[in-house]
Computed example of a mutant assay.
Amino acid sequence: MIAYRAILDVPRELVQHVARLLRAERRRVGTRPGTRTLTCFHQALLVLVWFRKGEDKTTLGAGFGVSRATAYRYVAEAVRVLAARAPTLHDALRRVADQDWSHVILDGKLFHTDRLAETTTSVKGETIDAWYSGKHRDFGANIQAVTRPDGLPIWTSDAMPGHLHDLTCAQHLNITAALYWAASELRLPTLADSAYEGAGLGIHTPYKQPADGRRLAVDNRTYNAALRSMRCLGERGFAILTGRWRTLRHSTASPRQIGDIVRAALHLTHFEYRYLPHSC
């Protein structure tokens, strides 16, 4: 292999922030000084290179003078530490309400993965690939996200198998229950697309076109236009994450780990957008 100089386009403050979290984790588990190949700062740098560029961990480890196994271990440790700093859904909703935002936006996205052999039984009783999405015609994990009205993601979910519908994932993860609470207790309604039709009170979805081909009533078309104009910024949430952190675009890790990886990227995004709570 040939080494070369490169520049990582993240602020030095972010590297130092991640290094502080890793240093606290080493103290927590009782790591003795001088027993790690890389310092906390250089481990943080390695992890941010992986998030930002999505490099193969073998090549990434060689660039930092560590083995492939060590690179995997360093990245996994950092993902676990960063994901643990992400807010809970109730805390995220309460914070948005305290900042006087008018609503939040719910959306789902398939995060692409390599082909998987895990199977499950469909509602029709057929054996299907658990992580294959017929809608996207690809393998991946379904991640749900809640964003502010301006598109900044404030919370992301655990990974769910790609064959599941967005509404099914939201119900299984108790997201709809939390959004009902926000609508009733915090006066914070949720806007969503037609994939969440029937989600319940407080979660507003567009009216669907009648099956018999008739046009929607003018009031319903006006409602859909207004909803679409406010909800469209929610699409920006996943774009912020995948555009900034290239490793999210395709994963070779276990799909069940994608939820933690996305939460870790969310924490990094909140740091760059100065959205971390004061306790961080």
Rank of each mutant, 00 (worst) to 15 (best):
D98M: 02
R137D: 09
Q16H: 07
R52E: 14
F64N: 03
R236S: 13
H136R: 15
L48M: 11
G63A: 06
A6E: 14
G213E: 06
V262L: 10
P149T: 04
G108R: 04
R95Y: 02
A178S: 15
G259S: 07
D100H: 12
V123D: 13
N224F: 03
T242G: 09
Q16F: 03
A199C: 08
L22Y: 11
E25W: 04
S194T: 15
D56E: 14
P33V: 04
R95V: 03
A182H: 01
D9W: 11
M230V: 11
W50L: 08
Y74G: 07
A211V: 13
K109A: 15
M230K: 15
F51S: 01
I261T: 14
D219R: 10
R246N: 11
S67V: 10
T147F: 07
L8R: 12
G34M: 06
L14S: 10
V47R: 02
V10I: 12
T242A: 15
S122R: 13
A117P: 07
I7M: 12
R246S: 12
A76K: 06
A211T: 14
N224Y: 07
S194P: 08
K53Y: 11
L46E: 00
L48S: 04
V15L: 15
I105W: 02
V47A: 08
E25V: 04
N224T: 07
H172N: 13
A84L: 06
R73S: 14
D107G: 04
T70E: 10
P189N: 04
A44R: 00
H250G: 05
D138A: 15
G65M: 07
G63I: 00
G213K: 06
I105D: 01
L116C: 13
L38A: 05
P189E: 07
A86N: 13
K109V: 13
E77I: 06
E235S: 08
L216Q: 09
V81S: 09
V49R: 14
L82A: 11
A177C: 01
L167K: 05
W245M: 12
L268F: 11
Y196R: 14
T39Y: 07
V29S: 12
P161V: 04
L116P: 05
R221F: 06
P153T: 01
V79N: 06
Q171D: 09
A199F: 01
W50G: 07
P161H: 01
D114E: 14
P87W: 08
T70W: 06
I7C: 10
R256H: 13
L46Q: 00
E185C: 10
T39P: 02
A217R: 13
E77P: 04
A62T: 02
S254C: 10
K109C: 14
V146E: 00
Q257G: 08
D260V: 08
P277T: 00
